[in-house]
Design a protein around this nucleic acid. Structure first.
Lengths: 398, 398
DNA sequence: GATCATTTTGTCATTTACGACATAATTGTC
DNA sequence: GACAATTATGTCGTAAATGACAAAATGATC
């Protein structure tokens, strides 16, 4: 049964244009939880009648189920639709420096299973493919899921992926340069695969279910030990000529600054990454302290730690002011560990952005001035987004 | 006769969706000179049959004419199509600080007439509309063109224009903040009007007829007394929340640097604008010298002037490395007065970009590394692009 | 010089998305 | 409780874009 549904779903999703009406509708459904026909029509720009017939097809195939909802205002109450969780499962896999993490989600994007595996550094693509395959097999067996229900696997890569599907050099995935991702992973996994950079996946997660819901243009900045980011234009994360769009952590803000792991001097990462905060804390305390503890101490009111976060926010704001000048997005999402500090980070960040920006707050009315928000996901944004690639099936491995 | 054609053209162009097949075809035709049916199909992504029928319509209305061409390889020779220059005229108008410039071009984008008028600073929108109207009337009379053949007027603004059509504060067009561009200009001109920022128009010109022909993703940097720029993604120049996307001249590269006219410190403009070059030359010579002369002296081999241009290139490269990190475009176009120095500017610029970039040349193969080119238009790029808005009719005043 | 491969072009039946209409289900008001 | 107002939904004819087919016009090959 589930198998039949899955093959139908595959037929409906793949083999189609990347922006065909069907895909748009599924995309809209995969975003918000329960949506009515007319809402989908408004969101996608399609005609109501088109959405209506498509939904009828999807319901006939049991891929979409109805849910009853209340309407606040007058008028006929809307029928809420959502993807049938039983229709299939997706996998999201993160390939990080020293860790491979796999999550299983149903079509409605509820996380069903989660498995993080440490791996020795400098692992090979072949190794990675085998590890993922094994993890998926294990998880499906453990949770008694049918492997046939798996409709696709999305990958979040800690390396740039060029538009042609080739992996570019990165410090995280060593020796992968020049490898064709599809060729390396497709044979082992025997399912449709999708991939994007780790930070683009994170942006996708925030756009579909997080702080950027409903926004199609925003810039994401992730403040972890490494600082990365993504630029989303018109609902699509920018890829770039070599797949490295959004790498804001390595904007050089001081050519005479300290040396960065990337080989340049004075990269933004050195001034607003989690590494900066923990290094400063160590200097101050004489001992090391986990970043999460630094943040919670700051929240509890310890001024020293607050100042550290403010300094990081100041630098981040300066970095984002550059994005503001070039891209001028209506929304900035700040995520990563440091973002859990909330306003302690955001307030100085906003002030610094304003200070270093060309467009001042008074130059424009409120509606035209960018909004700064903390991200919703702190831990598994990239895995979640990778799973999201499958249903959204926006990625570059056809 | 011309009038009949024009009204037909208007009917075909306006009243349609902004990306309807007809508009796409006209757009393709307005770009390259002579294109075959199948080439248009490939460029636009439309089916050959669609293009075929549309072209038939356009030919019947005399808006498109055939030209014979040779084919190099085997196969049936292609029939080249191009817009009929007699079908109508477009106007491009630049509203600058102390100058209003108007050009008239035919539908094939040959410039028919050109008129630059100095105006006193801080002129009002009403004044501007009247001046443009008067200039257009004069030019059409002088060149014995029928006013009825005018199908639309495009404006290049020296101010940000928000997506909703409202003008934001700028140092060039004083007191225009909050004005609805359409409301202010439409009544006076009685023709379809279009508008975009000056630098976005310049980018459009480079994309349609200049150094970025065929590219749909690139970053433009204009090195004039003011330094501006544009970011083109997917064939569309970014607008931004308040219309100030691409304002790269005011990225702060040194928070403790000298004060900039915009009120910040250490903006990029101060290190790579034409103002920087002329200021340094004045210091050195003890007298002022026009930038154009500085450039030609440098070309003739005078090392002092060469060094000045190299310094500007160095700074520009550093600025562009930030665009590289965020956007990672495959192409950078450098235009403005300084770009006439050619490799004297570009060589140090490339070196500096490479030095300050995260993605090094050796990290990727040639195909994934960005190309740096000088722009094709030095003087009237913005006017030309403004006229281009009309046929492309991509702009935000519906 | 005939044949093949190649590329372009136009036509036509099929598919597809849309706009218009009619209908359904609720809230608020008199 | 009836009626207007409002909003959502489904159906159907129409317009439009497409894919498949057939034909045309060349260069290359034997």
């Amino acid at each position: 049964m589930a198998n039949m549904l899955t093959s139908e779903l595959e037929g409906l999703l793949y083999g189609r244009e990347l922006d065909s009406p069907v895909v748009k509708v599924v995309r809209a459904l995969s975003g918000h939880g329960a949506v009515s026909t007319s809402q989908i029509a408004r969101n996608t720009g399609l005609a109501r009648s088109t959405v209506s017939t498509i939904l009828a097809d999807l319901k006939r195939s049991n891929l979409v189920v109805e849910m009853e909802t209340r309407n606040p205002g007058p008028g006929r109450p809307a029928v809420a639709h959502s993807l049938n969780p039983e229709a299939g499962t997706c996998v999201g896999a993160l390939l990080d420096v020293d860790e491979i993490r796999v999550i299983v989600a149903d079509v409605a994007h509820n996380v069903v299973a989660d498995l993080a595996m440490p791996v020795e550094r400098e692992y090979s693509p072949t190794k990675a493919a085998r590890v993922v395959k094994h993890a998926v097999d294990t998880l499906y067996k453990e949770h008694s899921l049918a492997y046939g229900s798996l409709i696709g696997i999305g990958f979040a890569l800690s390396a740039p992926l060029a538009p042609d599907g080739r992996i570019m050099r990165s410090s995280a995935l060593h020796g992968w340069q020049g490898i064709d991702f599809r060729e390396a992973f497709q044979p082992v996994l025997e399912k449709p695969i999708f991939a994007d950079s780790e930070s683009n996946c994170a942006a996708l997660a925030e756009m579909m279910w997080g702080a950027a819901t409903g926004s199609s243009d925003f810039v994401l900045l992730k403040l972890n030990p490494t600082v990365s980011g993504a630029v989303v234009i018109d609902g699509k994360p920018l890829v770039g000529a070599s797949g490295s769009a959004g790498e804001m952590g390595h904007i050089v803000i001081d050519p005479h600054g300290p040396l960065c792991r990337c080989g340049n001097r004075g990269c933004l990462e050195l001034y607003c990454g989690a590494g900066f905060v923990s290094r400063m804390a160590t200097d101050w305390l004489g001992r090391s302290m986990p970043v999460s503890e630094i943040v919670s101490r700051a929240i509890q009111g310890e001024t020293g730690f607050r100042r550290l976060l403010a300094d990081a926010g100041e630098a981040a704001g300066r970095g984002l002011s550059m994005a503001g000048a070039m891209i001028n997005p209506p929304l900035f999402i700040i995520s990563g560990v440091l973002a859990s500090a909330g306003e302690l980070l955001l307030a100085p960040l906003r002030a610094s952005y304003e200070k270093h920006s060309f467009v001042k707050h008074e130059d424009v009315d409120e509606a035209h001035y960018p909004v700064f928000k903390a991200g919703k996901f702190l831990d598994n944004d990239n895995c979640l987004g990778a799973a999201g690639l499958v249903l959204r099936h926006s990625s570059r491995l056809k």
